[in-house]
Each structure stands twice: as structure tokens, then as C-alpha cells.
């Protein structure tokens, strides 16, 4: 494989290295349902929207995936877990909902109630 823009990747490495220094503490987690049901409902697009938004806002959040949890009719499902807080499950998430979930909930701690389908914890 020849990465045509290998230099770009190296530059990105340096840039990211500086950003990572000095950060510590518990991280917020975002978990996306990636079973057959989630994928068919558009979870991949939601996933890439989350990554774009995190990259744009330069946020340090752990993004995880899970399989089918049995709530297929509400897929795509996205869970947000802030350290020490309840696990909030959002349902029927569209890529367009992602910036709001991230700015309201992940950054400011305000749950986007109208999209919530479950709260655990």
C-alpha cells in the first residue's frame, strides 16, 4: 500500500500528539448500535457524523459499538454516558441529530429529552 499523502498522516500525528498532552480524567462514552438492524437503519452514517463532529470540535470522547440490544424498531440507537451520570439511550437518531446531541449533552450535560428512549443507572 502506498499512502499517497503519507506526509499528511505524519503531520496529523504531530498535531494530535500536542492536543493529547495534558488531558486526563474520565471520558464520556458514546456507544452506537451496530447490529444488522442498526446498520440497515443507518447507524453507519450516524457513526461517521459522530466522528466528524468530534473531530470538528476537537473533543476527546470514547466512541464504542455494540450489537443488537433488541430494540431494533428504534435503531439507530446511540447511548451517551457521561462519567458518573446515567446512561442515556437516544433512538431513531439521524445524522442531523448528532451535532445537537453532542453540543447539548456531551459538552453541556443537558439531555436532549425529545430523542430519549431509555435511561439506565
Amino acid at each position: 500500500m502506498v499512502i499517497k499523502n503519507l506526509d499528511d498522516l505524519r503531520r496529523l500525528r504531530e498535531e494530535t500528539k500536542q492536543e493529547l498532552e495534558g488531558r486526563h480524567g474520565g471520558e464520556t462514552q458514546i456507544i452506537v448500535g451496530m447490529g444488522t438492524c442498526g446498520i440497515a437503519a443507518g447507524a453507519r452514517e450516524v457513526m461517521t457524523a459522530i466522528l466528524s463532529e468530534l473531530a470538528k470540535r476537537n473533543l476527546r470522547v470514547t466512541v464504542l459499538q455494540t450489537g443488537c440490544i433488541g430494540m431494533c424498531q428504534r435503531e439507530p440507537l446511540v447511548d451517551v454516558v457521561r462519567p458518573g451520570e446515567k446512561r442515556i439511550t437516544y433512538g431513531n437518531v439521524k445524522p442531523g441529530d448528532v451535532p445537537r446531541i453532542i453540543s447539548e449533552h456531551v459538552v453541556n450535560g443537558r439531555i436532549v429529552e425529545e430523542l430519549v428512549v431509555g435511561k439506565i443507572g
Binding site: 499512502i3 499517497k4 499523502n5 499528511d8 498522516l9 496529523l12 498535531e15 494530535t16 461517521t48 459522530i50 466522528l51 466528524s52 468530534l54 473531530a55 476537537n58 473533543l59 470522547v61 470514547t62 466512541v63
Partner: peptide, 12 residues
């Protein structure tokens, strides 16, 4: 897993 890296790879 860094989002910037993943978005870079997607564009690449």
C-alpha cells in the same frame, strides 16, 4: 480511534 485520524482516513 482518534476522530481526526478516522475522518482523515475516510477522506483518503
Amino acid at each position: 480511534t482518534n476522530p481526526k485520524v478516522l475522518i482523515f482516513l475516510q477522506d483518503y
